[in-house]
Write a protein that binds this DNA or RNA. Structure first.
Lengths: 132, 132
DNA sequence: TATAAATCTTGACTTAGTCTAAATCGAGAC
DNA sequence: GTCTCGATTTAGACTAAGTCAAGATTTATA
């Protein structure tokens, strides 16, 4: 059910060792990996997988809605194994990205924006994470 | 007062023809230009200005708070001549970015995020602009 | 005017990502 | 089991954003 093969099959993507390595790597990630992070991780599972295949597979997964993609960081797109709606907090010092549960924030006034059809939205916060 | 020379002087940046061309180009922009957009525009005012100088100057302007920088779009950072707080709406079809006035939206619940010190935030919306 | 400091240019370099052509793999037909 | 064709993968060339270093030029100041 939650193994890479079934996940790929459910989405109509033919499972291959390379794709499985990518899926396992990105879904296991607790952070917001870049394509290159996923490439490195996938390499440890399938040492011959190529950069192009990693990009192709990640884009496939995004299309199928299995992972998210965020452009919230300079230099590279990041992928997001958490597909539930959520907001983001970025620590300016470390660059770390944290998920903020959807129901912790409420955005009011969207319905007054008559000129825009809002398909999705999120709050992006920047600052510093407090360490106890 | 609002001419490029005074603006640069007020920020303690030595005015040069190159920097003036960059400042005039980016401040005159009604959109959210990329560094390359600014480079092209600045070239028409100062045909010898180099890419490196455009990047240097834009970064200087951001440091001094004269313009904003946003990483909301794939592929390239965009600059923002509007330094007032505002939110953003991105048209998924055209890639156009629109400013949403700060007071049109209200974000509630931020004070409950005890683990984070929020220095800035904004709402990012995606969808389609309605054309009448 | 002379000199030092600041600035600018050029071009090499790095990194993210795409593209292509050739090699390889795999599922179904027989 | 093996053949064949389409799907997939690979390596490497390529593009675009952005940085960097070294030498050239400009500017400030004495």
């Amino acid at each position: 059910m939650t193994d890479a093969i079934s996940i790929l099959r459910q989405c109509g993507i033919q499972p291959t060792p390379q794709r499985m390595a990518v899926v396992e790597s990105v879904l296991a990630s607790k952070t917001h990996p870049t394509a290159d992070d996923v490439f490195s991780a996938a390499r440890t599972k399938c040492p011959t997988v190529s950069r192009a295949t990693v990009y192709n597979t990640l884009n496939l997964l995004v299309e199928k809605g299995l992972i998210g993609m965020q452009t919230i960081k300079e230099g590279a797109v990041v992928f997001d194994p958490n597909t539930q709606k959520h907001h983001h907090f970025i620590d300016d010092e470390t660059g770390e990205i944290f998920d903020i549960p959807w129901d912790q924030l409420e955005v009011k006034g969207k319905d007054k924006l008559r000129n825009f059809e809002i398909l999705e939205f999120q709050v992006i916060m920047r600052g510093r994470r407090k360490r106890k």
